[in-house]
């Protein structure tokens, strides 16, 4: 984004390779933990762990690969806003699913 910056100023080729390595390792961990039976701890634990790993990978991509870490406040605002919108989508969709069980508001 900012002028006169080249990629190498930030993390350079080794940095990008490190990001790549993190992503590969993350994928591998996702694969391995899929075989653990975490749902016996509480239902949905497997999904939660997979999502947590995916979220970590995404954060690394955004911060380093997409240079958000070195960007201006406006870029940060845009990046955060998109998550806020994602949150809206999930929250308002889930308010439907979670209120379909028996109760005063169920059909």
């Amino acid at each position: 984004m900012a002028e006169n910056h080249t990629d190498h100023e930030h993390i350079g080729i080794p940095g990008y390779l490190a990001v790549f390595a993190i992503l590969i390792v993350g994928t591998w961990i996702t694969y391995v933990v899929a075989f653990w039976d975490l749902d016996s701890i509480f239902p949905g634990a497997n999904t939660l762990l997979a999502l947590a790993i995916a979220f970590t990978k995404m954060t690394v991509v955004m911060l380093y690969f997409m240079h958000v870490r070195w960007s201006k406040e406006l870029i940060w605002l845009s990046a955060v806003a998109s998550f806020f919108w994602l949150l809206i989508m999930f929250a308002f969709t889930m308010q439907d699913y979670f209120t379909r069980v028996s109760g005063v508001f169920s059909a």
């Binding site: 699913y97 379909r100 069980v101 028996s102 169920s106």
Partner: peptide, 11 residues
């Protein structure tokens, strides 16, 4: 007869 019920298993 709480027939007005309808679980969230659609999800």
């Amino acid at each position: 007869n709480n027939m007005g019920s309808n679980s969230n298993q659609g999800g």
